[in-house]
Amino acid sequence: MSDALVEARDGILIITINRPDAKNAMNKEASELIAAALDRLDAEDDLRVGIVTGAGGTFCSGMDLKGFLRGETPFVAGRGFGGITQKSPAKPLIAAVDGYALAGGLEVAIACDMIVANENAKFGIPEVKRGLAAAAGGLMRLPKKIAPHIAMELALTGDFMDAKRAYELGLVNRVTSGPALDAAIELAQAIAGNGPLAVKKSKQVIAESGEWSEAEMWQKQTETLGNLFATNDAREGAAAFAEKRKPNWTGT
């Protein structure tokens, strides 16, 4: 059985870490399969949104320590840990978290653009408890997602937080009593119904604008959006609104 499963469903690419017996601990094979799936997400025009989830009621418990002891590293060149932490796809990506998202598992989740979690989910970067550090993005990315002093506490104590607390801190978008994947698909469908070029460019501005100075931000936004307002989809969106119908997006 493959260590990661990939399914295209109505414009949504669902990527499932498939090592439930190991609590979906990330290994080299799963990382490579995830990286390939993200390449596919960006390459295929009919795919609009990606979802990363885990099989068997757990998202990801982090790096496969048994593999680590054998000398295996679950990193992909140019993509990072899990095939995702260093390079995000151009299209939106949602983490659907059931159970534990710990260590590298949390780093995979926060590398996504949005997180949907079951109410019983747990989040944490407990690497310090093993003499390690959350070096796959956790130490750098988490303080940008939540208050830095809260991120500091999580990094230095290794303590977990539940989905309710993660939602209160703004780390999680939605908390559900059912399977996280179902709620993530609902969110993905809402995104997939919008103009694909507009969605892609909007993600890019939000992702990159944190590094722009106030003096350059308007020029940078104009450059990033390019000719978006002159595209066929822009005209189609306006026409569909005026005619009270569903838009027929072409991605042009």
Rank of each mutant, 00 (worst) to 15 (best):
M1N: 12
S2K: 08
S2T: 02
D3H: 15
L5A: 10
A8C: 06
I12Q: 02
L13V: 08
L13A: 11
I15P: 04
N18Q: 02
K23M: 11
A25F: 08
K28T: 12
K28D: 06
E29M: 03
L33I: 14
I34Y: 01
A36F: 00
A37L: 11
L38E: 12
L47V: 05
G50E: 06
G56D: 07
G57L: 06
T58W: 08
M63T: 12
M63I: 13
M63V: 13
M63W: 08
K66H: 11
G67R: 10
G67K: 12
F68A: 15
T73S: 13
T73R: 15
A77N: 15
I84G: 10
I84M: 15
T85H: 10
Q86V: 05
P92S: 05
I94M: 11
I94N: 08
G105W: 07
V108Y: 09
A109K: 05
I110Q: 03
A111I: 01
N118C: 00
I125W: 04
P126W: 02
R130A: 12
R130Y: 08
R130P: 00
G131P: 07
L132C: 02
A134F: 04
A134W: 02
A134H: 06
A136Q: 02
G138N: 09
M140V: 06
R141D: 09
R141E: 08
P143Y: 04
A147L: 10
H149T: 05
I150D: 07
A155W: 01
T157P: 03
G158K: 05
G158Y: 06
D159P: 00
M161H: 01
R165N: 01
E168S: 07
E168W: 01
R174F: 02
R174C: 00
V175Q: 07
S177L: 13
G178D: 10
G178Q: 08
L181N: 07
A183G: 12
A184I: 06
A188E: 06
G195N: 15
P196L: 12
A198Q: 12
K200P: 02
K200W: 02
K201L: 10
S202T: 15
Q204N: 09
A207K: 08
E211G: 02
E214I: 07
Q219G: 11
E223K: 09
E223Q: 12
T224C: 13
T224A: 13
F229K: 03
N232G: 12
D233T: 00
A234S: 11
A239S: 06
A239N: 04
F241D: 00
A242C: 01
E243Y: 00
R245V: 11
K246P: 01
P247L: 01
